Computed example of a mutant assay.
Amino acid sequence: MAPIPTPPAEPQDSPEGYVGLPADGAERQARERGWSTVRTLQPGAIITMEYLAGRLNFEVKDGVVARCWKG
């Protein structure tokens, strides 16, 4: 039987800290802090809800991060 894979470590970073930042600056900051994937979404976008370790999601409205969450 194959071993259970260990998910990659996520940065010790608070998603709430990105809310209110300009989207381009927030993405740059997230990548500098170690997030492997940064996904930018429009409000109300239809997305899959699978959790992906190391991913940070931004909901962007008028060029500003309105909501941010892991996975």
Results as ranks from 00 to 15, higher is better:
L56Q: 09
G54K: 00
G63M: 11
V60E: 03
Q29Y: 09
W35K: 07
Q42D: 01
S36A: 15
E59K: 02
L21Q: 07
R55G: 02
P11M: 13
A45D: 06
R39S: 10
E27W: 02
A26V: 08
P43Y: 01
I46D: 09
E32W: 07
I4Y: 13
P43W: 05
D24S: 15
L52N: 09
L41N: 06
D62A: 02
A30S: 09
R39E: 08
D62Q: 07
D62N: 05
E10K: 03
P43H: 04
K61N: 04
I46L: 12
R33C: 08
F58Y: 01
Q12I: 14
P22S: 13
R33T: 14
C68I: 02
L21I: 04
R55C: 06
V64D: 06
P5M: 09
G54Y: 00
T6R: 10
T48R: 09
P5C: 14
G71K: 05
Q42Y: 02
G17F: 02
E59F: 00
K61G: 06
Y18P: 05
G25Y: 01
D62S: 06
A53S: 12
K70P: 02
K61L: 05
S36Y: 07
S14L: 14
E27I: 09
L21S: 08
M1C: 15
G20E: 02
A9M: 11
S36N: 15
Y51G: 11
G54T: 07
R28T: 15
A23W: 00
R28M: 13
S36K: 12
R31T: 13
K70Q: 13
P15F: 00
D13A: 08
P3F: 12
Q12S: 15
M49S: 14
D24N: 10
A9Q: 13
L41H: 06
I46C: 08
A30H: 00
A26K: 02
V19R: 11
P22R: 09
D62R: 01
A30V: 06
A26L: 04
L21H: 03
M49E: 08
G25R: 14
L56D: 07
D24W: 07
E27Q: 10
A66I: 00
E16F: 07
